[in-house]
Structures are given as C-alpha cells and as structure tokens.
Design a protein around this nucleic acid. Sequence first.
DNA 1: AAACTACATTATAATTATTCTAAACTGTTG
DNA 2: CAACAGTTTAGAATAATTATAATGTAGTTT
Lengths: 142, 142
Amino acid sequence: MAKNYNFIEKLRELGLRPTKQRIKMCEVLFNREKTFHFTINDLAKMLTEKMGEKISLATVYNTVHAFEKKGYLKEISINSDKSYFDTNTSIHHHFYDEDTHELIDCNENDVNPVIVKKNITGKKINSVEVLIKVASDYQNQK
Amino acid sequence: MAKNYNFIEKLRELGLRPTKQRIKMCEVLFNREKTFHFTINDLAKMLTEKMGEKISLATVYNTVHAFEKKGYLKEISINSDKSYFDTNTSIHHHFYDEDTHELIDCNENDVNPVIVKKNITGKKINSVEVLIKVASDYQNQK
DNA sequence: AAACTACATTATAATTATTCTAAACTGTTG
DNA sequence: CAACAGTTTAGAATAATTATAATGTAGTTT
C-alpha cells in the first residue's frame, strides 16, 4: 500500500469498507519507510495504544487475513508458536534471531538467488523462501 | 540413528533411558530407508497402532524434543498450526505441498547451494533453510 | 532380589494461538 | 434517513502444546 494517507480510497479499491479499525491498521502498517514484521499480538497491542481504545483481537485477525488475501501482507514461514507477517510482499528472505525472536529482512544482495532446478511434477511453485536462523555466538545450545 | 535394532544401546549413549515407549519410537522413526516427515499427532497415532496400547501424547512430545535436542530429529520451519519434524538432520531443503500439507525433501541437486554473503554482526548462522511452497497448477488462489 | 533413587510416563489441567458465533453496530446505497 | 450487507465485538470453542503431580520403572546398591 502506498506511502500516503489515502487509506480510505485504498480500502475501497480492495472492496473493503473503510472502518476506523481498518484505517488505523493501515496507518500503523503501511505508513512506514522500512518493512515491518509483526505478530498478531504485537499489532493488536500497538493498535490499542494508538487508538486509545481497545480493538478486538478477532478484528485484527480478520483484517490481517483480509490484507494478506489481497496481497498487502505476507505470512512468513517460521516454526514458531505464533504467525509472523511482513509488510514487504516482494520476494525476499529473512534472518530469524533465535535469541530475541526477531525477524530481519535480508537485503537483495545478502543472499544469492535461489535456483530451483527440479520441481514436483504437476505442481506450480508459489514461493521460494530462505530462512536463516541466527543466534549469539556464545550461546550455542538451542 | 543407525539402521539397526540396537536402539537400546543408542538410547543409552544419548543418556536416555531405554523405556519401551522410546524404543518403539526409535523403531518407528529410524528404521527407515527414506527420511520421514511427521507431526506429533501423526506419530502418536502410528505409535498407538504399532504398540497395541495407547501412548501418552505428553510422552511423544517429550521424547521428540529429547531426540531433537540430541540432534536426531530436526524441526522444520513452516508456518502451520502444527510443528513438523524430519528424521533427516542433514542440511537440505523442502517442498511443501499446500494442497495436501505434505512435506517432501529436496534432493541435493534440486536446489543450488544457498550462499549467504552477509550476516548480522555478532550472530552465528545456525541454519539456512529453503522452503518451496507448491500447489496444483489449477488452484491458484490460496 | 529387595530397596532405593532418579528419571519417565501418564491422565489431566493449564496455557496459548487462533477461529467461531451470535448479537450489536456502522458504512453505503437509494 | 431507512434498510441492508458487511464489520466489530466479547466471549465461547478448538487445537496445539506445556505443566503438574501422582504413579511407574530402569538402573544401581545393598
């Protein structure tokens, strides 16, 4: 979504009613320079703060999934008890800090392009994602 | 773990008492030619069948995590409501079939080696995993 | 082999993330 | 502004996983 305040228009274009919850979510998610990684809980907390009133968790789930379906958010494959989402929907890879449970984008040039030479017959490749798990040097045991 | 029936010895070497539940788990998991992908539930079901008596879910969780800590199982990074494990603990990548929710190993040569050129400072790379999500050609929308 | 001890297993309760439900609410259209 | 369809909401329901506390068992000591 664009770097402006016309989220009402944007939402309409997506066929989503511009409710105040959704507009606030757009502001929090898409009014940024850098890409943003979050869990539903992170986001719900931020929203409740920024709005000064509580937003229902169910709404956050609904809206995040709506944005995902429309292609404005991407879910990231990590094996965690929670789901992580990313405002950067382009193809890119991630570092996952096992100490802090933080996600960090790989820069384009940090990882050479991944070449898949052979695919499963009859299937189409939807995505190719690299996850690089890192941790402090002096904490070797998981 | 090796392709033999000496799981009692193996377990002792790991510092794990060879209980009948653990021995059965070894037989189910490690008496295979091909690598094996599973969720806790899959495994619990198989075990209950093979043993003719019920095995507690808690035991399956405990033991799977014990094996993982010892390096005989690997958890695979997929964002799913369940955790997937793999008896192949070497570095290798996966296809994930979004239709069937099945995991399939990549062969060594199916994917070119992933080169990480720049890492986060102060951190050590623990793993680099590629996940290739595939689906039927005629079912494009997730 | 009886007794002891530390670790394992178990059923069940607790916890956590996520989805469902049904009622109340609110954009939108006419 | 009335009516409708889509939204939000609190709370219930579900599902995966972890914690608990009692009972059981492997391994060691006697």
